[in-house]
Design a binder for these strands. Structure first.
Lengths: 138, 138
DNA sequence: ATTACTGCAAATCCTTTGCAGGCGT
DNA sequence: ACGCCTGCAAAGGATTTGCAGTAAT
């Protein structure tokens, strides 16, 4: 069932030069076939709905691998846990401090103006913008 | 020695409505008398240079208190640890991924243009901009 | 007496690591 | 045989919590 998303997932792994395995395929299915924001634990739960035997360590290992291959971006938004973002195009984030909800803000909509000159021998890695919102009067 | 910074620290606590204690004074001295970026552990070490008996738990408790009173801002920049920023004016950050070095970018220099309308009943809490840099080819 | 503050140790949570077994080439 | 991949359990590190003692009002 759902051979389509498996197909897509497998393609994304191959394109990135990641050898396909059953576990990686399942993780890629939940993470790479549509734009999502998920913690490692959420990925684990979702993967285990189909494949209960996948281990937590494998999820962490695979997430690290995906990050190294630029298949996902790590979002450092909450000190409690890292969130993995499968949208790798440049974009920014709106974060609801109360609920933990994250949504994308496109780079067309919002722009960062006046980037400082980078010190000497340094290269720009990434620009994160996090717009933190909450309910009134907290 | 250094009664001046103690004086400044005490004033900042009182102004914020934080009852002054010895521990809070020492922590305020390292954190609130000049603009710095420090992790909880760094604060602990620096405080212990003068007052070795201050406990780790007290540092964490006090940092939480300072944050609630808006004496410091929490920077979520690295999943390993939270950094406390004693500059509470609006400003942004340059982060060296390799060394962990953090520096300020003033809000005059850099601006965020095109802030999206906030969903319904939500209020802007804070806008974080983190410019991540690294040495070439890592 | 009550309330607030501190220190210590234990507990908790996320993430990484060590190691052994399995699979594919 | 060899190297990669996985699972399990243990380790690690940052932060929080429970609780008892102390100080202050």
């Amino acid at each position: 069932m759902d051979t389509l998303s498996s197909r897509i997932a497998a393609d994304r792994l191959r394109t990135a030069g990641v050898p396909v395995t059953l576990q990686r395929l399942e993780i890629a299915r939940v993470l790479l076939t549509q734009p999502v924001h998920l913690s490692a634990d959420q990925v684990l739960s979702m993967v285990r709905e189909r494949s209960p035997e996948v281990s937590r360590a494998t999820v962490y290992n695979t997430l690290r691998l995906f990050r190294e291959k630029n298949l996902v971006k790590e979002l450092i938004v909450d000190p409690e846990r890292v969130v993995y973002d499968s949208n790798t195009d440049p974009h920014y984030h709106l974060y609801d401090v109360d609920t933990g909800e994250l949504s994308d803000v496109s780079a067309d909509e919002l722009q960062v103006v006046g980037m400082p000159k980078l010190p000497g021998n340094l290269v720009l890695d990434q620009v994160d913008v996090i717009i933190r919102v909450r309910k009134p009067s907290s």
